[in-house]
Design a protein around this nucleic acid. Structure first.
Length: 276
DNA sequence: CTCGGCTACTTAACCACACCTGTAA
DNA sequence: TTTTACAGGTGTGGTTAAGTAGCCG
């Protein structure tokens, strides 16, 4: 048996602001939380990254590693990028590109091990889906080790099998589904199975470097995009923490020249221009 | 082992409005 | 084609109700 392994992993990167969160929880479909059975938008899955409402984690073979564990509350500003990015130092994703991933669960279904025979459940976008809308990168696996983990038997000797994984947007989040991706198989040349020329080696290295650089620049604390809005918000009067209307007396007077002013006759309080 | 009560902690929603963006005139 | 005006959407922070977790009897 020389079936190619299909490694299923999901990278679920939650990157959401606080506000829309409640509108999507418990109501969307997607990967489920193995602890509570809820969807990917399950509040358990969203629980990591308390302070800045951002969390990044992966579901590797459906295993939920942390968010249901007691005493794993995140300190403010910290981040869980365990599993996918390396649980120890968040430093190494080398296995993603060169080395085998962590152990795969026992419940790998035979169907998932069949190249080009993925079940519909893992093909939410169908053949019409163009991964150009997502980020596709290469995943190389030592197949022998994968076979050993999956209990597939030795099989023929082989080198590596590269699968492409596509990062896709879903449910306001980002998923990576390598299982739904097409595996690159050896091709028959002169009656011999030969792996196509691999021009992607340097490409992969470049991608890895770009990824690492991007990761180092990644910031998870709240970032102010508009300092002026922050300034106005801080000056704005509040009632029990909520913004309140600017009192009539303290509203800006009509300026002599064109400028902004308050127009309390309108709900949206848009711009009102005075012209000299 | 399960349940209820309590405490401590976390977080999404709320609000007004300046500013941004897209569109029509 | 360019400029102007406008409508609608976005982002901003402090407070709090609601949700969650942990502990104990």
């Amino acid at each position: 048996m020389t079936s190619n392994p299909s490694i299923l992993f999901l990278l679920h990167t939650i990157s959401i602001d606080k506000k829309p969160l409640r509108s999507i929880d418990r109501s969307m479909s997607g990967p489920t939380c193995s602890a509570c059975g809820a969807s990917a938008c399950c509040p358990h899955l969203l629980h990591a990254g308390a302070d800045d409402s951002r969390a990044a984690f992966s579901i590797f073979t459906g295993e939920v590693h942390d968010h249901h564990q007691p005493g794993t509350q995140q300190p403010p500003g910290s981040l869980h990028e365990f599993q996918f990015f390396g649980q120890d130092d968040h430093e190494s994703i080398a296995w993603l590109f060169d080395d085998p991933p962590p152990a795969v669960g026992d419940d790998q279904s035979p169907v998932e091990n069949q190249p080009h025979q993925r079940p519909p459940a893992f093909d939410p976008f169908g053949p019409q889906y163009h991964p150009g809308k997502g980020l596709t990168f290469e995943v190389s696996l030592g197949q022998g080790e994968v076979d050993a983990r999956l209990g597939l038997g030795g099989g023929a000797p082989h080198t590596e099998t590269a699968a492409s994984a596509t990062i896709m947007s879903f449910c306001g989040s980002t998923f990576t589904d390598a299982a739904s991706s097409r595996l690159k198989e050896p091709i028959l040349i002169n009656n011999q199975l030969q792996r196509p020329a691999d021009p992607s080696s340097m490409e992969r290295e470049a991608k890895l470097m770009r990824y690492k650089e991007k990761r180092t620049r990644r910031r998870y604390e709240k970032q102010i995009r508009y300092a002026s809005r922050k300034a106005y918000a801080e000056m704005r009067p509040r009632l029990r923490g909520r913004f309140t209307k600017v009192p009539e007396a303290s509203a800006p007077r009509q300026p002599a020249l064109a400028t902004t002013c308050y127009d309390h006759s309108r709900l949206d309080l848009g711009r009102c221009w005075f012209h000299a």
